[in-house]
Every structure is written in C-alpha cells, then in structure tokens.
C-alpha cells in the first residue's frame, strides 16, 4: 500500500529526537485518534536551522514527520508557515487516500511550533 519512498522514510527516518532549548515546540494529535506528533525547531534570524520530531503513529505519520522536518530546514518562518501537507505528500510520492489525514499532523505540528516560537519572542 505504501510506495518505496514512504517505506524508506519509515525505515530510516531523518531528524528523530528532540532539540534541547528549542525555540519552538509543537505537539498535535491525541492518543485516541492513533497519531501524535511533536516537532522541535531551532530558529535563528527567522530561519529554521534545525528541526527534529517525535511521533507516535502509523508508518505514514512517521514518514511524513521525517520528510516535513527535512523540508523546513533552511526555510524562513514565513515559508515554513506556507508548507502544506499536500507538498509533503507530493515529496513522498503520494500516500494512500485513507492515510492523507496522517500527513495533516505534520503541517499542524510545524505551525504550532512556529506559533510557540512567535509567542515566546513576543
């Protein structure tokens, strides 16, 4: 059901872990729906210089966490806010229809981490 890119990202996910003293942290999802994602961002001069994640969830949730964190590294905060789950899914070469909802979490977790960063800064 998953393509090779997705399975590869699941098998060898990038950016697993936490960032100590992260500038922004976003936690979304809940245990009862089956997927929870936590994203940590390190931001300097409005540019995301590092991103890490921790995910409780299916293979699609883990693969999208890996890909989304890869994608936001080097982006400005504004660019990262514009990252949609659709782009993440495209980068992964597609997900089965019933798995699209899992990819929404990555987009939401990044947005939430940035909100956290902005509220700390303000």
């Amino acid at each position: 059901m998953y393509n090779e890119k997705v399975m590869d990202a699941f098998k060898n996910p990038k950016n697993v872990g936490e960032i100590e003293n992260a500038d922004g942290v976003g936690l979304v999802g809940n245990e009862s729906c089956g997927d929870i994602m936590q994203i940590f961002l390190k931001i300097e001069n409005d540019i995301i210089i590092d991103a890490k994640f921790k995910t409780f969830g299916c293979a699609a949730a883990i693969a999208t966490s890996s890909t989304a964190t890869e994608m936001v590294k080097g982006m400005t905060v504004k660019e990262a806010l514009e990252l949609t789950n659709k782009k993440v899914v495209e980068t992964l070469g597609g997900l089965p229809a019933q798995k699209i909802h899992c990819s929404v979490l990555a987009e939401e977790a990044i947005k939430k981490a940035i909100e956290d960063y902005q509220s700390k800064k303000a």
Binding site: E18, L27, I36, F56, I62
Partner: peptide, 8 residues
C-alpha cells in the same frame, strides 16, 4: 518507543 513522544 525512542521515536515516540509519549514514552518520554
């Protein structure tokens, strides 16, 4: 589990 936020 090392990947899971819940474990921590």
């Amino acid at each position: 589990r090392e990947m899971s936020p819940l474990f921590k």
